[in-house]
Design a protein around this nucleic acid. Structure first.
Lengths: 181, 181
DNA sequence: TAACCCATGTAACCTGTTACATGATTAA
DNA sequence: TTAATCATGTAACAGGTTACATGGGTTA
């Protein structure tokens, strides 16, 4: 179960509150592991009970108090051990591919439209990644060790999105072709 | 919820029993949507109640009776409608990327080993795909309409695995490099 | 004779999703 | 004054995982 680990990884990147974590899961680690705020709060409670994170109450003016979560030594060890443990490749779970698998049932134009919508979404995601690259990773050889690793994950993301784009284009072209019966 | 649709897609490709479906989910649609046999049996019961599939009892000699599931007209319409409905791109959920995100915590050799293990797994998956291509899709222009769509999904799979391989190699090379501090 | 395949299921549990709740502050 | 942001939570439900159960047939 990697939600635990995703949260620890995010907290190690930067200590913050549950609320902040939830927002950060829209980017950052969130690109590779999604979580809603309810999942996060639930998990943080467990992590605290297990002694993998500790909590600091921060009293604020003009806004609600918050709990800052800090990864403990135990927490860091727990993460480090996990990283070295052999794991299987992640299973693919993708609706669009299921749709194409039975694509002959539907109208060609409908499928082409759905492919085009996906193409655009992947293009947008790629643009996001490119902006992040420009912003934080424009000089790769000057990066700190931790950021070099994060840059690697970003590069995975860019490869992934570029490949999706290429495939969408291929699939759309396929739909436009005339085949012999 | 696409498990429903994945099952219908698989049944449309070929009518079979719950047991057979479970096995087929190790390949075929299963490459894009995983399911355990418990999930499948549970879902088939619901699909039958909803009238999207119908059941034929088949009495066998020397082995337990089985229930053949056939997609009904309603079921086919249900699937077809779903295919045309706009959907969002699938979120990525990948442990290895979470691991790399906090990669600086772990020993370099440990991470390199994990990357290598993943590289091998992706290579194996790619070989599987290539065999399927050789076996079923070696003459693309002679394929039936439905198989052309399935071939598209296979081509996605090959792109995906090739890109993973390339990235693993990049990441491993990165770990071997010497950087200035 | 032990282990595995065929075939279907129940039960308990863990994860993930959605909706609802609160209550103050700040920007449009 | 309406909506959004900050901050944390409860509750109910849907989806997914793991373990266990049964019972005959086949293979090593």
């Amino acid at each position: 179960m990697a939600l635990t680990h995703a949260i620890l990884s995010a907290l190690i990147e930067k200590t913050c509150s549950g609320y902040d974590l939830a927002k950060r899961f829209d980017g950052s680690v969130g690109f590779f592991w999604r979580a809603t705020h309810q999942q996060i709060y639930r998990e943080l409670t467990k992590l605290e009970q297990a002694g993998l994170v500790s909590v600091k109450k921060v009293v604020q003016e003009n806004r609600p108090d918050k709990k800052l979560y800090v990864v403990t030594e135990n927490g860091q060890q727990f993460l480090t051990d996990w990283i070295a443990k052999p794991a299987k490749i992640a299973p693919v779970k993708d609706e669009l591919l299921v749709k194409l698998f039975a694509g002959h049932l539907a109208d060609r134009a409908a499928i082409a439209a759905e492919l085009e919508r996906h193409r655009l979404q992947h293009q947008n995601r790629l643009s996001e990644y490119r902006e992040i690259e420009q912003c934080y990773f424009h000089t790769p050889h000057k990066l700190s060790q931790d950021n070099r690793f994060r840059y690697l994950t970003l590069r995975w993301g860019m490869r992934y999105e570029r490949e999706w784009l290429a495939w969408c284009e291929e699939a759309i072209a396929f739909l436009q072709e005339r085949f012999e019966p």
